[in-house]
């Protein structure tokens, strides 16, 4: 009796696989491609907040109108794990990450295809892979922003550790445990001050009833509106909020001699090994580290461009003169497991 069903099933399977084929197969493109005629699909996985990456994609798209740029954005670790999962059957062409540790870890797993973009030598060595498998784009700092209407200058917290002071109870906003910048900060702190002190700090935040949002856009808006007094953010969120006309100020924490200094990090990009549109992927990486691309990040996002010679946004404080934390990339990467353990133990939302 079952045999009568086979035609039906076969048809369904056929339809399904036909549809699947039509949506998943990359367009075949000729291998010889000249710069201005890139076509087909460019699939970008991004762990960055969408509005921070869309302007540069739009500019790239204008340059190559034939190209179909497809973005999948999600949390940094979700995208990173998707890449690991797809190692045998890669779907994406390019990965953009919010922090270098993920790039480093994925490179170790052999996910990326090394590529030296145009102008590679003008990028700082600290933020590129030894084997050129990934390249840093922009730098940023972890800072505290505050609402100038609600906090007077003389009571400002001078250190990240001051955020656990009970006098700020219920008045601090931060991004939650799914946020990659937050994860990277915790991992960096483990290297800088040790696991115990980091754990104590996390528990202190929980005890201080910090409001944890899904992302930093919410944090900056909450501080900007005065819903909360202090916010733990990447520096550009302060500038973005300031540009909206809010009364906010910025604190560069842990500057005193002997303190750990500002935790900084960089966004990075890489080509996926097995990319089906290598020419487009290379052109995109070239564009990201080109003067034009770097200016978009600097102007629109207030990020520190890594390409030497690209001007900072005039409002931005130059890095020279700030006490920066001494972060060892290779070490911090090994602290990620401990980071997630700490997050779970502290029950960070």
């Amino acid at each position: 009796m079952l045999h009568k069903l086979w035609p039906v099933l076969a048809t369904i399977t056929l339809i399904l696989s036909a549809c699947a084929g039509s949506t998943s197969q990359p367009d075949a493109i000729s291998s010889i491609e000249n710069e201005n005629s890139l076509s087909g699909k460019l699939i970008i996985y991004s762990g960055r907040s969408e509005p921070l990456i869309q302007p540069v994609m739009t500019a790239f798209q204008t340059k190559y109108p034939q190209l179909e740029v497809l973005l999948k954005s999600g949390s940094n670790s979700q995208m990173a794990n998707t890449l690991l999962e797809e190692k045998a059957n890669p779907q994406a062409d390019v990965f953009i990450t919010t922090e270098v540790f993920t790039a480093y870890a994925l490179s170790r797993e052999g996910i990326f295809l090394p590529y030296e973009p145009v102008g590679y030598q003008n990028l700082p060595d600290a933020y590129k892979a030894e084997d050129a498998s990934w390249v840093g784009l922009t730098q940023r700092m972890r800072v505290i922003m505050y609402n100038t209407d609600l906090v007077s200058p003389d009571e400002l917290p001078a250190s990240l550790f001051a955020l656990t002071d009970p006098k700020w109870k219920g008045q601090i906003a931060a991004a939650g445990s799914t946020n990659a910048s937050m994860q990277a900060q915790i991992a960096s702190m483990i290297q800088l001050v040790g696991q115990d002190q980091t754990e104590a700090w996390l528990n202190g935040l929980i005890e201080n009833e910090v409001t944890f949002f899904g992302g930093h856009s919410d944090v900056r808006k909450a501080v900007g509106a005065g819903e909360l007094k202090l916010g733990l953010v990447n520096h550009y969120y302060y500038y973005l909020q300031l540009a909206e006309g809010s009364n906010v100020g910025i604190i560069y924490p842990d500057q005193a001699p002997g303190e750990m200094g500002i935790i900084s990090n960089a966004t990075a990009a890489a080509i996926i090994k097995g990319s089906k549109n290598l020419n487009a992927a290379r052109a995109f990486i070239d564009f990201l580290v080109s003067e034009e691309g770097q200016e978009i990040f600097a102007e629109g996002n207030y990020e520190y461009p890594l390409l030497t010679g690209v001007a900072l946004h005039p409002d931005l404080e130059p890095i020279v003169g700030l006490n920066m934390a001494n972060i060892e990339l290779a070490q911090v990467v090994n602290h990620f497991e401990a980071t997630f353990d700490l997050i779970d133990m502290a029950n960070l939302p």
Binding site: S75, A80, P349
Partner: peptide
């Protein structure tokens, strides 16, 4: 969702 999206555990 947090386990899946944020930590992929």
């Amino acid at each position: 969702f947090v386990q899946l999206a944020g930590r992929y555990d």
